[in-house]
Design a protein around this nucleic acid. Structure first.
Lengths: 392, 392
DNA sequence: ATTAATTTGTTGACGGCGGAAAATAATTGG
DNA sequence: CCAATTATTTTCCGCCGTCAACAAATTAAT
């Protein structure tokens, strides 16, 4: 029943996944290192690695690179690394007016990118366009199809990965769409669906700033302001599909009206369009997009003040995240962060002021994000599914 | 090396804990039911139960109570329940001016209560008083000492259960106190330490409204406003010991000054003393405590309005919790809730207004809490430790 | 050079534990 | 009393991880 060309997931059980992800996220590691990190015995590691190496997913590092500070006595370690080109994954982020697709290898390194604008948001049109986009991507190299691991799709809104349903997506205007089934039949590929912010969080968890953290949060600043949470070894999905909605924390009863109907939400102060509106309003300048707003702010104190106010709101939101779940790190990402120097000071000051006690020890990590990174997040979801099929 | 009279933890491994907690939290259950709930095979359940029954922790229900809607064909099930009197636990909540202690059975039913006021907050004095309090409690019945499972202690502030340290407690003015070690040597009992709100959350998780929920939050409204979180099968402790600090979410830049230095925190609007101050201020009445404030509000519209404003702030905080982690349920507890009818309407309205999408589906459960319940929470921590020693 | 010490990696025996299937038990409904 | 049905127990089997012994590869010391 297996379609030809789809690689079989390499792992047999939980231990296999554990060992594999340890190597995947921890760079080249000797078997002994893996044993220490996982808490398994050395014997168990050897046994778990055997089939993974046989199937080509793990390879021993050829050049021992003996220079690195070692020179200890004893048999030298032979580090093992993931063979990233062993299989490939596709990820597509669906927005209201565009599809962004990537192909990545096993380590989520982007190998190919394609965008495709949407002329219609009708479900069948989106599915058709998505299938075409993925086909185009996979046609870029024979290897992609030859050893394909899975397709990840991310959508903003309320999404259920288990059933593969888009329960509600405001941007697309969808309700109760069995998106995974539709995409799977249209493409013939194994498909996994996830919320867009959570997909990004998965990417950070395994391939980004979340590696090694017991808990972390990803805060995205863009049109909206969102937050992905990784707590107690897992991503928080919310009992009803909603989690990490920090965009509408109200900070100022007299603040600007938000589209949600309340006043002074973070999003209504620090969202991209809020910033643009505010800059137009206070300076009278005709700024077309965020880039020109940033440009303007370099010389115009009034515009700069708008960014400072936004930075204040973001700092408050970060403090709320830190006080709430006490993550080890918070990764702040977004397009606007290209202008990080404009926010930075204000964000950190406000965060420090409002973080409660030891919550302030939480590390703030800035990570500017391109649109392609969102699609990479979707691919990361597919990778995670491929490696740990059991994990929710 | 085991002190005489301390019962040995009954479980061998993870499966044993699982089966035992399933029976403990799920009331009397047949082995077949347990198999379904845990996902184990029936055979595994039988095998896991054997040693637990032999040791007297589980007993078969004698009276099959055959009335209950059953009357199906086939061999009747023999429900198994926890033998609650098999062993006893003590729990002590330490506040700035009082110790509250209880003895409970294995099901966290309170068997004995004692309070003891503190004349000094010096560490050694508190330890001495605590040991005396526990001794008094255990002296109330021979059974307590004869089959004693463990002592749980809860303290407000930043607490590390693993090391047994009170890292920082504002109310006691302690820093880096190795409290578990001190109490253990003073009492000769096995001791477990936990943050007070998290201890309460453990009690709800196993013996209260959290039973069966994949995620829930406990919001406590009292002098301070706090929140315990249960997410992804575990309680959230925060990487730096801080989590669930919702008391200082700022909702109103022009609101009253909070002791934390900012304006308009939830705590500065809806905390007990904030309510009292506000009522004195607006009505000029001399209210001594919350009870008389409630009394007054029954007839005085101005006082009632103060409660409504507090209810609004609480509703906002609940919405923030729901939007943030999307729990299945939120348990709201506190002394002030005796006057729930004063808050209720406003809390629910505000919550519904500010909960984002499906986050509003979260169930709000009211559970008035006595001070003894806090001590019971500490005992619950000891129970949990007794049953699942491996779990963090 | 030889040997000892040290660390890594492999192999095989052993045991715990959970599942599958068969056996046993206890009822209901003929 | 016999079938049907559901609960529980028993027996057997296989997976998987640890332990202990061993093989490998290198440094340090003699």
């Amino acid at each position: 029943m297996r379609s030809p060309g789809h690689s079989r997931p390499p792992v047999a059980g939980a231990t296999g996944s554990l060992v594999f992800t340890t190597v995947l996220t921890g760079g080249p590691l000797s078997r002994a290192d893996v044993a220490v990190r996982t808490g398994l015995s050395a014997a168990a590691v050897t046994k778990a690695m055997k089939p993974l190496a046989d199937a080509g997913y793990l390879v021993e590092v050829e050049e021992p690179a003996a220079d690195l500070g070692s020179r200890r006595v004893g048999r030298p370690a032979t580090p093992v690394r993931v063979h990233a080109e062993r299989c490939y994954f596709a990820g597509v982020k669906v927005t209201g007016d565009e599809l962004i697709g990537v192909v990545t290898d096993l380590q989520a390194t982007v190998c190919a990118v394609r965008h495709r604008s949407l002329r219609s948001r009708a479900v069948e049109d989106v599915v058709t366009e998505l299938a075409a986009l993925v086909a185009d991507l996979l046609d870029e190299s024979d290897s992609y199809r030859a050893s394909f691991g899975g397709l990840g799709v991310s959508v903003g809104g309320d999404v259920d990965p288990e059933s593969g349903m888009v329960r509600y997506s405001p941007f697309l205007g969808w309700r109760q769409v069995p998106f995974v089934d539709l995409v799977a039949t249209a493409t013939g590929l194994p498909v996994r669906l996830e919320n867009d912010v959570r997909a990004l969080t998965v990417a950070e968890q395994w391939f980004g700033s979340g590696v090694g953290a017991g808990s972390f949060a990803v805060v995205t600043v863009g049109t909206g302001i969102g937050c992905g949470l990784f707590v107690n070894e897992r991503i928080v999905s919310g009992a009803h599909g909603v989690a990490g909605e920090i965009g509408h924390l109200p900070f100022d009863r007299d603040g600007p009206l938000c589209h949600c109907g309340n006043h002074g939400c973070v999003e209504a102060i620090a969202g991209n369009s809020a910033i643009l509106d505010r800059i137009r309003q206070t300076t009278g300048a005709e700024v077309a997009d965020l880039a020109s707003a940033i440009e303007l702010a370099r010389n115009d104190p009034a515009a700069r003040r708008v960014f400072a106010v936004a930075g204040h709101a973001i700092g408050m939101a970060l403090a709320a995240v830190a006080n709430f779940i006490g993550p080890e790190r918070i990764v702040i990402s977004g397009e606007g962060l290209a202008a990080y120097d404009l926010f930075s000071e204000q964000i950190r000051t406000t965060f420090a002021e409002h973080a409660f006690g030891a919550a302030g020890d939480c590390a703030l990590i800035i990570r500017p994000l391109s649109f392609d990174d969102w699609a990479r997040g979707a691919a990361a979801v597919a990778i995670q599914r491929f490696i740990a099929p059991h994990t929710s």
